[in-house]
Design a protein around this nucleic acid. Sequence first.
DNA 1: GCCTGTGAAGCTATTCACAGCT
DNA 2: AGCTGTGAATAGCTTCACAGGC
Lengths: 215, 215
Amino acid sequence: MPAHRTIGRLSLYRRLLHGLLKAGNETVHSYELASLADVTAAQVRRDLMVVGRSGTPRRGYNVRDLIDGIGDVLDAPMTQGVALVGAGNLGRAILAYFRGRRPKLSITAAFDVDPAKIGQVIYGCRCYPVDDLERIVAEKGLRVGIVTVPASEAQHTADALVHAGIKGIVNFAPVPLHVPTGVYIEHVDVTMFLEKVAFFSRQNGPQGEQPREQG
Amino acid sequence: MPAHRTIGRLSLYRRLLHGLLKAGNETVHSYELASLADVTAAQVRRDLMVVGRSGTPRRGYNVRDLIDGIGDVLDAPMTQGVALVGAGNLGRAILAYFRGRRPKLSITAAFDVDPAKIGQVIYGCRCYPVDDLERIVAEKGLRVGIVTVPASEAQHTADALVHAGIKGIVNFAPVPLHVPTGVYIEHVDVTMFLEKVAFFSRQNGPQGEQPREQG
DNA sequence: GCCTGTGAAGCTATTCACAGCT
DNA sequence: AGCTGTGAATAGCTTCACAGGC
């Protein structure tokens, strides 16, 4: 199985490659993609080894070929539906952003407790009552969930998702979720990111050390 | 300088410790905090070495003491102000969440292009025109920025922030930002998280490998 | 006896450096 | 001559395992 961080970067490379294609580039060198992604050229070449589409010395990689190859690694054979729980500001931001963006991965059901939202179509996605979460997720066979509920609701939301058959969760609530073995969690801890940036932004004085990280 | 990931986890530990305190706990064992944070007990103890507040064998750590110690590591001597650029759904979600939460780190100015938002107070934070960004950020001496603008605006927003003296950026736009040496960036790539979860949620069949990561 | 603090080991990720292809 | 593909080296991060203190 490919390395954890490599999978993340492939997602980024693919987006950058789409941009290159739109700008009329048919080929790309490892150092160009590296500069766009803010990583080293060796990192790009190492990551692309798992994709298995060889580049040509002197000419670099074919952009369309790489996009296809990354798709072969990242994408499910058939479209994967995603459930989003919590249609507050954050949930709506995510619905708006993903609307029609990735054909192989789309948010197909939103859930909320607010009666004013239930039954509405929010950025192209129908909003259902959370009470129907387990039934609808199971019926639609959804395997991926996004949690954008308040901290107090996060764990039992996760429990319900797992019970309904969800195998992976992106968690935006500010608390870690506890799930059984076999369910993959990614905790996007915004407070942590902000405190980390606040910390490291203070560390490098005029000629200090230079920590960097993207992703 | 403390390790990168350790700083991130200290932020999480502190939040969990505040929760413990509210629940009436005066002391905590490494394995308890580990279970809450979903890491190993050895990891917690290793991380707490940089905090320098010793626990007591058999009794564990004093919760208030740890909170203080983590504050000594993470917090700036004086309150750090933060600028947020882009008061869309995502920007407002972040404003709402941080409202009055951390006295030592608070979002003190929001910026947007939308005339309807300019002059408004959004979740306790005044919204200014982006045209005044550099002047206001410099005047207020802000060092940390949050970028929640569309992809097309992200790079020049970052340029303006850096020009105004910002030393650290949390970037929520779906493109990596290029900044000069000395500016610390954290790219929160939501698409990447979702694609990663979609990928790994497919990998572990009934008895497959078990990748896990939180943070 | 049970938990902390930490050297040492083990593991993962990144970078180096160069052979090989065009 | 210049770029890819990759073994080897390095760096960074996590876990082991146990000595030391209460």
